[in-house]
Design a protein around this nucleic acid. Structure first.
Length: 548
DNA sequence: GAGTTTGAAACT
DNA sequence: CAGTTTCAAACTC
């Protein structure tokens, strides 16, 4: 029989425990772990109704900017009933809340289980704000997910979609799980409480203030690291992005204010983060979402180190914020081209435990107008393509009729080539749509591909053009006619294919150009930063302990 | 993906 | 409470 099973069996023989998640040393009123915080980063990320919950209850959040063990969760990760409501607690055969007055704030508990960095790559599909993120998935094998080894259990949530074996942290094993909770609490009443005692943080944090966030908070128990220097994620303090404190009993600690090693680690993270962001943005725009989700694995890290020159100074971004930003769908969605590349304000978002600002290397290259123009260009291009390809098709038909089919292939290629000369690159200042528009477009009654129609529908929605007729592209009833005709068309798939090929080819070319521009800028930036690093190191050696 | 290292949790 | 073992995440190859 397993040892853990023995434990549980023994426990089961005990009388029903009084489960009291609040029954810590300070007594039952310690739901408030910390003084009320007027506005925490987490709060700012909550839906409005939850933010008001924060305020109306006047309770300091016990969920702070900390790793997975802070019991954040999503709607996809069910919270254990006893954590959710006294009612369910009372229904438990084993565990009961000691006092009805200790009603837990249900909404407060229904927050996202914050992923450990390792889990983040799986979360790129997560959407911003109210859209649930994928929860951390544990890989427990021997603990049955009923011990604190298990991240899910420690977070107070059921396993959901985890890779664990013999999992008992689920509804089906509620009794066993409740017992385990009781045993765990008996051993350590604070077992399910946050490990990090947080301090009030400023609601608005500028880049200059980010480094301060890293030192806010203290590990309640402290770490006991021996070999990691507290600069790896083995260290709970480091993972929580806080400095080691007097609570820690670590050896050879390098996670303290003013530590050169620590600064280097963060500088490296800064560098990698910015480069990865830029690369992701470019790639996601060029090849679509399939290439997103690029969490830095060690191998990738090596590649990026080579690429980056390994050090970038200028802005300190705490790792939690970095990872959180990686999740940001805007940075990886191809539809977010304008938002992620163009607007500086759009790039400043509350993320993770703090705010950080990412400025794309293309920020000065691409303007909003460029993106609008690109969209217009693609629409116009589709029209041109529809026209020329229809002509091509007619020619093919004719030549087939005259037995000269083979000659038409070359002709088709030439036509295609001609099409490609029609437009200019989008990045040459503002794309001259007029030129493309000047092409005699008498093909408005020709059917368009569904993709093209979708593009034009977007235009009509005013998504890009506001009034619908900006930039010289008139959106009129003609499009409606086209849509109608298209739906009634007899399926000119070859025309569609050629249209799409043309458009996608052009789009690819444009994106390649952008990537090139970004790379150039990044290279320039890196070389500048290298110089800066040298200067900063010199000043650091002279006693300047400033952060990047 | 397998193997190793690490440190928290669990146990004695 | 200190020492040891177990465990799963972090990390390396």
């Amino acid at each position: 029989m397993e040892k853990s099973e023995t434990t549980l069996d023994l426990a089961s023989r005990k009388s029903a425990r009084q489960l009291d998640f609040t029954a810590v040393r300070g007594g039952p009123t310690l739901l408030k772990l910390s003084p009320p915080m007027p506005h925490s980063p987490l709060q700012s990320r909550l839906p409005v109704e939850l933010q008001s919950d924060f305020q109306s209850r006047g309770q300091g959040p016990w969920l702070h900017s900390q790793p997975w063990w802070l019991q954040q969760r999503t709607s996809q990760s069910p919270v254990m009933p006893h954590l959710l409501s006294p009612r369910s607690q009372l229904s438990s055969p084993v565990l009961r809340l000691p006092h009805p007055a200790q009603k837990l704030p249900v909404k407060m508990l229904q927050v996202v289980k914050q992923e450990s960095p390792r889990s983040l790559p799986q979360n790129n599909a997560g959407l911003k704000d109210n859209t649930p993120k994928k929860q951390k998935q544990c890989n427990c094998k021997n603990s049955r997910c009923l011990k604190l080894y298990c991240e899910c259990f420690a977070s107070g949530i059921y396993c959901d979609g985890c890779n664990c074996l013999n999992c008992h942290n689920n509804v089906d094993n509620e009794a066993a799980r409740q017992e385990a909770v009781g045993i765990t609490l008996e051993r350590n009443p604070n077992a399910f409480r946050p490990k990090i005692a947080s301090s009030p943080q400023k609601p608005q944090v500028s880049m200059e203030e980010v480094s301060e966030i890293q030192v806010i908070g203290k590990h309640n128990k402290g770490c006991h690291c021996k070999k990691s220097g507290c600069l790896k994620k083995y260290c709970e303090c480091f993972q929580a992005n806080i400095l080691c404190s007097e609570n820690c009993k670590c050896m050879d600690c390098k996670n303290f204010e003013g530590s050169d090693e620590r600064r280097e680690v963060f500088q490296e993270e800064c560098s990698l983060f910015h480069i990865r962001q830029a690369t992701n943005a470019a790639i996601s725009g060029a090849v679509g979402p399939s290439s997103t989700g690029t969490h830095i694995t060690p191998k990738k890290r090596k590649i990026q180190e080579i690429f980056s020159g390994k050090s970038v100074i200028g802005q300190t971004v705490n790792t939690a914020a970095q990872y959180q930003q990686e999740l940001d769908p805007l940075a990886s969605s191809p539809l977010s081209l304008s938002a992620s590349f163009v607007s500086d304000t759009a790039n400043t978002r509350i993320s993770g435990s703090s705010r950080s600002t990412y400025r794309s290397v293309l920020a000065d290259v691409l303007q909003t107008q460029n993106v609008k123009n690109l969209c217009s260009l693609l629409v116009v291009l589709s029209r041109v393509a529809a026209k020329t390809n229809a002509e091509m098709r007619e020619k093919v038909v004719r030549k087939i009729e005259t037995g000269k089919y083979e000659a038409s292939i070359a002709s088709s290629a030439q036509l295609l080539q001609d099409n490609r000369e029609v437009v200019k690159p989008v990045c040459q200042d503002h794309v001259i749509i007029e030129e493309a528009d000047a092409v005699d477009i008498d093909n408005r009654n020709r059917p368009l591909s569904p993709e093209t129609l979708a593009l034009m529908c977007d235009e009509q929605d005013g998504m890009f053009f506001g009034n619908g007729s900006a930039n010289g592209v008139a959106i009129d009833n003609t499009n409606q006619n086209m849509i109608q005709k298209s739906s009634n068309s007899d399926g000119c798939t070859d025309v569609y294919e050629e249209q799409e090929r043309l458009i996608l080819t052009k789009f690819r070319d444009i994106l390649c150009g952008l990537i090139t521009l970004g790379s150039i800028k990044e290279t320039m930036y890196s070389s500048l930063v290298k110089k800066d690093v040298g200067i900063k190191k010199e000043s650091a050696d002279n006693g300047d302990r400033g952060h990047c």
